[in-house]
Nucleic acid binder design. Structure first.
Lengths: 193, 193
DNA sequence: GTCTATAGAAAGATAGAC
DNA sequence: GTCTATCTTTCTATAGAC
């Protein structure tokens, strides 16, 4: 038996990673299965051995991306929760996230794209969104008393800031926007020293 | 001469209105020229007598939509600038805007969609975005001292709030998000009495 | 499981009559 | 300017060999 279960998992993983990279940068419609499979080093024929449809892949790609993928996920020992959160927020609202990230945040890069898609994709999006809020709340609990509502407003601002910045045609406006959001976000979270 | 210049303008206007309605709700790729023309009461053949391409229509549709289209644009005499701005912000961050608006704000409904499109669309988007900021600043000047940076953060939050809310699959979360953004936005703008 | 080949549908753009 | 008809491309999904 030439193909082991492990081998299949590896292929699947490569397809998912390629999907995240291409979907986030180009959106659902402009990304073809062909392109994803080629990027993963395969041909389109074998796609349906892993996923039921393009929609299926899309939803799973969104769910696949870890929250705050721009960074890792675990806090370094030597940083306070406050400093760590500030770093996450700053990284999220950075030009690096916009232009260089291998796995940009689908919440920001695919907001509108998901809205016109099937329920499965929207569900995956909702899950990631709730996780992002949860994660931030976990950190803020330890040093500030900002409530659930404020955190929701902040995540909306972070997502909106990145999404809008990516869309602007003016590089200077892009930077100014990210910087403004960063400052206000940290202030609202009480993460500014 | 059966077709006057005025008649052409009317057709053009109808096409643009249909384009705004369909593009904002379904995005660029999922909206066909055929659908737009049918919605405007015409057939696809005559499309190219008005626009050069689908991309062209898209950019013009974005530019066509007045800022804060959800409302009108002119402030009623009997309202203070402060109250009027509060009303605009509340209307923007409302479920009515999400589900019932004839001309939803393209800034929120098409963020991601524009990002993967041609420069003309991004330029149109940028123009509307700058106008939105400008408009809010015009009002805040008279009663609060919130600066340009804060206004940028607030518009990012408004756009992000609406965009994310529309994408969530949970109706309760949708409402909670809009409400949270509304409150924080008004506070930041100093528009809460 | 992965490949090549292809069926079948959708949609952007053009041609030509009125 | 608007219509009908059509060319052409693109892409999802499937079929069948290895």
């Amino acid at each position: 038996m030439p193909y082991t279960a492990e081998h299949k998992q590896q292929s699947r993983g490569r397809i998912l990673q390629s999907a995240v990279r291409l979907f986030t940068r180009q959106g659902f419609e402009s990304t073809s299965i062909d392109a994803v499979m080629a990027d993963a080093g395969l041909t389109r024929g074998s796609f349906y051995a892993h996923f039921n449809s393009k929609q299926d892949l899309y939803a799973q790609a969104i769910a696949y991306t870890p929250v705050f993928s721009v960074f890792g996920q675990t806090k370094p020992e030597d940083l306070t929760e406050q400093r760590w959160l500030a770093k996450l927020v700053s990284g999220y609202l950075s030009q690096g996230h916009l232009h260089k990230a291998e796995q940009p945040c689908p919440l920001a890069f695919l907001v509108t794209d998901v809205a016109v898609n099937e329920p499965e994709a929207r569900q995956a999006y909702t899950d990631v969104y709730l996780k992002m809020n949860q994660l931030i709340r976990t950190y803020t609990k330890n040093f500030s008393h900002c409530d659930r509502e404020t955190v929701m407003a902040v995540t909306a601002m972070m997502i909106g800031g990145v999404a809008v910045a990516r869309t602007l045609s003016d590089r200077k406006a892009e930077k100014a926007l990210l910087e403004s959001c960063r400052q206000v976000a940290l202030q609202l979270l009480g993460a500014v020293e």
